[in-house]
Amino acid sequence: MSIPAAREKFRSFLTQKGLRATNQRLAIFDAAFAQREHFTAEQLLDYAREIDDSVSRATVYRTLPIMTESALLREVDIGSGEKFYRPNREGAGSQVAQVVCLDCDKIFEISAPFMQWYGSTVSSKLGLTPVSQRLQVSARCDQFQKTGVCPRRG
């Protein structure tokens, strides 16, 4: 999905929810969609304030669930107590698996089209319809295990 199409989807979703497309919300959207890596709410606050210094922490924390519900952002919980987000450029319904490197704390996403089949298959056996699913793998860096240096660590 292109950024202009995603921005329009965001505006429409806000209108559907009875919310206004304020400058702060649009700055948050722009900051989120400028990212190529996963980010936290606090990082998004910093990125959004570079665009509009009036963006408040409260608005970021209220906007993230809206962007997640609209499928514009993917929320990732790796069990660290902090949630991570990433723009969903592939659109709703795209199936990805997350691989979390335990050595560098980096989150990788790979396409996993088999997940739709798997979710439907196991759910239908129980007479259920899947609503959401996720696959997350925790892994160790082979290079780090051998040399003590992780090439992905920033």
Results as ranks from 00 to 15, higher is better:
Ser2Pro: 00
Ser2Gly: 15
Ile3Arg: 15
Ile3Glu: 10
Ala6Trp: 04
Arg7Glu: 15
Arg7Lys: 15
Arg7Asn: 10
Arg7Trp: 09
Glu8Asp: 13
Lys9Thr: 14
Lys9Glu: 14
Phe10Asp: 06
Ser12Asp: 14
Phe13Tyr: 14
Phe13Ala: 14
Phe13Cys: 07
Leu14Phe: 05
Leu14Ile: 05
Thr15Ile: 12
Thr15Lys: 15
Gly18Arg: 12
Gly18Phe: 09
Leu19Met: 12
Leu19Ser: 10
Arg20Leu: 12
Asn23Gln: 13
Asn23Leu: 12
Gln24Trp: 05
Leu26Pro: 06
Ala27Met: 05
Ala27Cys: 07
Ile28Cys: 08
Ile28Lys: 04
Ile28Asn: 07
Phe29Gln: 10
Asp30Met: 09
Ala31Gln: 05
Ala32Cys: 06
Ala32Glu: 06
Ala32Gln: 03
Ala32Ser: 12
Ala32Asn: 03
Phe39Ile: 02
Thr40Cys: 03
Ala41Thr: 07
Gln43Ala: 14
Gln43Glu: 15
Leu44Pro: 02
Leu44Tyr: 04
Leu45Glu: 13
Leu45Ser: 06
Tyr47Met: 08
Tyr47Thr: 01
Arg49Asn: 03
Arg49Asp: 02
Ile51Leu: 14
Ile51Trp: 08
Ile51Tyr: 07
Asp52Val: 02
Asp53Val: 11
Asp53Leu: 08
Ser54Ile: 12
Val55Met: 02
Thr59Ile: 13
Thr59Asp: 13
Tyr61Asp: 05
Arg62Leu: 14
Thr63Ala: 06
Thr63Cys: 11
Leu64Pro: 02
Leu64Tyr: 07
Ile66Leu: 15
Ile66Arg: 08
Thr68Met: 02
Glu69His: 08
Glu69Gln: 11
Glu69Tyr: 05
Leu72Gln: 08
Leu72Glu: 10
Leu73Val: 05
Leu73Glu: 07
Glu75Leu: 10
Glu75His: 04
Val76Met: 06
Ile78Lys: 01
Gly79Arg: 03
Ser80Gln: 12
Ser80Ala: 15
Ser80Glu: 09
Glu82Asn: 07
Arg86Phe: 08
Asn88Glu: 09
Asn88Asp: 13
Arg89Gln: 09
Glu90Leu: 15
Gly91Ser: 12
Gly93Leu: 01
Ala97His: 08
Gln98Ser: 06
Val100Thr: 00
Val100Glu: 00
Cys101Phe: 00
Leu102Ser: 13
Leu102Asp: 10
Asp103Gln: 08
Cys104Ile: 01
Cys104Asp: 01
Asp105Val: 01
Lys106Ile: 00
Phe108Asp: 01
Ala112Ile: 01
Pro113Glu: 05
Phe114Arg: 06
Met115Tyr: 02
Met115Gly: 02
Gln116Phe: 07
Gly119Leu: 06
Thr121Ser: 09
Thr121Val: 03
Ser124Val: 04
Ser124Tyr: 05
Gly127Ala: 01
Leu128Trp: 09
Thr129Asp: 02
Pro130Ala: 01
Val131Lys: 05
Val131Glu: 12
Arg134Gln: 06
Leu135His: 03
Gln136Tyr: 00
Ser138Ala: 13
Ser138Met: 09
Arg140Met: 08
Arg140Val: 14
Gln145Ala: 15
Lys146Val: 15
Pro151Phe: 10
Arg152His: 15
Arg152Met: 11
Arg152Asn: 15
Arg153Tyr: 12
Arg153Ser: 13
